[in-house]
Computed example of a mutant assay.
Amino acid sequence: MKAITHPIKQSAAFLLLGLVFMALSSCAATYRDHGYVPSESELAEIVVGVDSRESVADVVGVPSTSGILNDSGYYYVKSRVRHFGAMRPKEIEREVLAISFSEAGIVENIERFSLQDGNVVTLSRRVTDKTVNDNTFIRQLVGSIGRFSSGTLQ
Rank of each mutant, 00 (worst) to 15 (best):
G105Y: 01
I4K: 09
V60M: 05
Q116T: 09
G105W: 05
D117L: 06
G118I: 06
S144I: 08
F101P: 00
A44G: 08
T136I: 13
T5C: 02
V47C: 02
S79M: 10
R125Y: 03
E45G: 05
D134V: 13
R112T: 14
G85W: 07
S79T: 09
S39I: 06
Q116D: 11
R53S: 00
G18R: 01
N135S: 10
V142E: 00
A57H: 01
Y75E: 04
S55A: 05
R139F: 13
N133G: 13
V120G: 03
V96E: 01
Y74P: 02
C27P: 00
S124V: 05
A104R: 10
S149L: 03
F137G: 11
V62H: 06
F14M: 11
E40D: 12
A44R: 07
R139D: 15
Y74Q: 01
A23L: 14
Q140C: 06
L17Q: 05
L123G: 09
V20D: 03
G118T: 01
M22H: 12
V48C: 03
R88P: 03
K90L: 12
E40T: 11
D117N: 11
G146W: 04
E108F: 00
A29T: 12
Q140S: 07
N133R: 14
A28L: 15
S149V: 08
F14S: 08
L17N: 02
Q10C: 02
S52Y: 00
Y36T: 07
R112N: 06
A12D: 06
A57I: 13
D71P: 06
V50G: 05
I138C: 02
H6T: 11
A23S: 08
T30K: 11
D58M: 09
L17S: 15
M1K: 08
I46V: 14
R125K: 10
I145D: 05
V48Y: 01
L43F: 00
Q140A: 14
R88W: 04
D71R: 13
R32I: 04
L97C: 00
